[in-house]
Write a protein that binds this DNA or RNA. Structure first.
Lengths: 359, 359
DNA sequence: GTTTAGCACTCAGGGGAGCTGAGTGCTAAA
DNA sequence: TTTAGCACTCAGCTCCCCTGAGTGCTAAAC
């Protein structure tokens, strides 16, 4: 059952006004905002119909209307005007992206910070690296008790560890081990690092001191660590500015939830989605997020690492602005990291996905 | 001018009661708490004297007393009973310390988190590395366009960078550069990396492609980065639990301040101090911290890196518990990282420093 | 049938007024 | 010097009323 044009116009006006002011919206305000040629009484009739249909609700009998989750959903799916980013905004993002991509490790946290500053909501950044392998293996002999393990990973990041042992060994053993590991441990995934493999390497190297297992331990650790996904939250302080979180109780609850990174990894499980995904209030599975909304954008890095950046805010969030910004950031990241080193120019169209509510 | 024993007993009772309850303390409560053998009227006389002396104040005429900054200072300096950590608490700290020391890089943030969990106040961890030098320099040739720079720093941490260039070079050049850098750039501090040095190295290597300057750039960056101190804040959410931060305005102000790491680096400037340093309310130079207190503990790592961990809370903070915990953590860190790898057993005595207020 | 004007009704939020109780300061007696 | 007693103060709570924004409904107008 489709809504009349006028109803849509009114619904949009209510949502947008409420997003700005956080106050219930009355018929007179709508008349001005939506530039409608009818009287407030007519609008009241329409409002009453929209309430009946479940798109709007009243906090109490004599107050204005506020959108329900269903109302927001319709707004996000159909009514939302695409937000054009200002030149200034795109430039901020571009320069931040190019400046920060230097260190991939710190990238997620930097991107998160950026998203938070840009939207003035708390943001989260999660990365889900694909199963990693080692591209290249090296040992650097330092002295009779010390050497460095250097691993070049499939993602073109480098991992290292300084190993300092209480007994001494000679340089030839290190050289031999380096060659053997390079031959046996490159290109394989975590599950291929078996005790058998370690044993055979140890024998081949003539290593009687257990160096092999120390090194293999680090290799395994690195491979394992790579697929434990990291999550970072920034800008939690922004929550406190919002009227809906003036109640410290409420703010505290959400902040506690956000500060446990384990929780967030669950969010990212929301699998492939087109470009931007919006989860409105009760659509969130997690109780703590029930009266907040989450906007997520996913990006992919050249190797098959995937990441998600997102923003958490009140259901009354400026969806169009947030979605546009996140989308731009995510696409910029994909281009920058997946492909060449050129800064992103114009990105594709904004697409939004999300669950529909039952009627 | 020294206070009588009874006055001290009363002052201590007021401070400790107020720390627990955050409510102004009345004469009757004190009588019970301090187990005094006089009537509430006598205590009122004493209270009135203590107010006169500037150790206590009344929020309004007919309310109980609360300690002033001066009162807290006296309490911290003289009256505070040393808090014994429970076995459970020391074990939590010990195991967390040993488990986490594996990765020195992430150490500060882990330690900060621990401090925050243990004290349920927001915590900050700052590290001030000493001027770093390079102990050992290596280049690993990967392919005609790629090599890895591996730096072993004076602090026994390893830094690396994958360099991928749009033009090709051969392995002998890399080997030569590796040897030259190892000869010329080890053992020197940042300010010794001059354009002259870079030029002479470039000539000696016969490098016509500018590899030398790329590498030197990374070296310089690493040396510089090392003394830019890192700061991490954890557990900000804890603020919202405290009654003094029920006002979202106030909480927001402090959280904003804390979330800018640049601000924190300033705190650490507080130079050498014995063991634990307590800054009470107005003793803080920064306006944002004027009605909070900060407890800091410093630790030193074997090489001359110094670090500070601290906790921010209301002036009504449980100083004895917080100081004991921070002190234990700091001493544990020093022992673990400065010396051997054995877990800390019994630590020294708790010493507290801080500025005295004028009378 | 749709729109409009008019009117009675509702209710959140703000601004006193008044009460309560914890706690004080002072005085006079022990 | 300590204590008991008493009058006084004042934050915080509750109760109450008022105001104004906004509604729903009805009857007339288009």
């Amino acid at each position: 059952m489709d809504l009349s044009e006028r109803k849509k116009k009114i619904l949009r006006a209510v949502v947008e006004e409420y997003i700005e002011t956080a106050e219930p919206v009355g018929s007179k305000t709508i008349k001005v905002r939506a530039e409608l040629d009818c009287s407030s009484a007519t609008i009241r009739n329409e409002l009453s119909a929209l309430s009946e249909l479940g798109y709007l609700e009243q906090p109490h009998t004599s107050a204005g209307r506020i959108p329900t989750a269903k109302g927001y959903r319709l707004y996000v799916n159909e009514l939302m005007r695409e937000r054009q980013l200002s030149l200034e905004e795109t430039e901020t993002i571009n320069s931040a992206l190019t400046a920060k991509m230097a260190e991939l490790d710190k990238l997620i946290s930097h991107v998160g910070q950026m998203a938070s500053e840009l939207t003035s909501y708390p943001s989260l950044a999660i990365s889900t690296p694909a199963p990693a392998t080692i591209k290249r293996f090296d040992l650097i002999y330092i002295d009779a008790n010390t050497f460095i393990v250097v691993l070049l990973m499939s993602s073109d990041t480098v991992k290292n560890k300084l190993v300092h042992l209480p007994f001494s060994f000679n340089e030839t053993l290190i050289t031999r081990l380096s060659a053997l590991f390079n031959a046996n441990f490159t290109g394989i995934t975590e599950d291929k690092v078996t005790p058998a493999l370690i044993n055979s390497t140890e024998r081949a190297a003539g290593d009687t001191m257990g160096l092999t297992s120390v090194i293999a331990g680090f290799v395994l650790e690195t491979l394992t660590a790579a697929h434990g996904s990291g999550a970072v939250v920034s800008g939690e302080a922004n929550l406190l500015k919002l009227p809906e979180f003036q109640d410290p109780e409420k703010a505290h609850k959400l902040m506690r939830y956000l500060s446990d990174t384990a929780n967030l990894s669950a969010l990212q499980s929301a699998p492939d989605f087109g470009d931007v995904k919006v989860l409105i209030g009760p659509e969130n599975a997690v109780e703590e997020l029930r009266d907040s909304s989450v906007v997520l954008a996913s990006y992919s890095l050249g190797d098959n690492t995937r990441g998600v950046i997102g923003v958490v805010g009140p259901t009354r969030m400026d969806y169009s602005a947030v979605a546009a910004k996140l989308s731009y950031i995510a696409q910029g990241l994909s281009k920058l990291l997946g492909g060449g080193t050129t800064p992103p120019a114009g990105f594709g169209k904004l697409m939004i996905k999300g669950e529909d509510l039952d009627v």
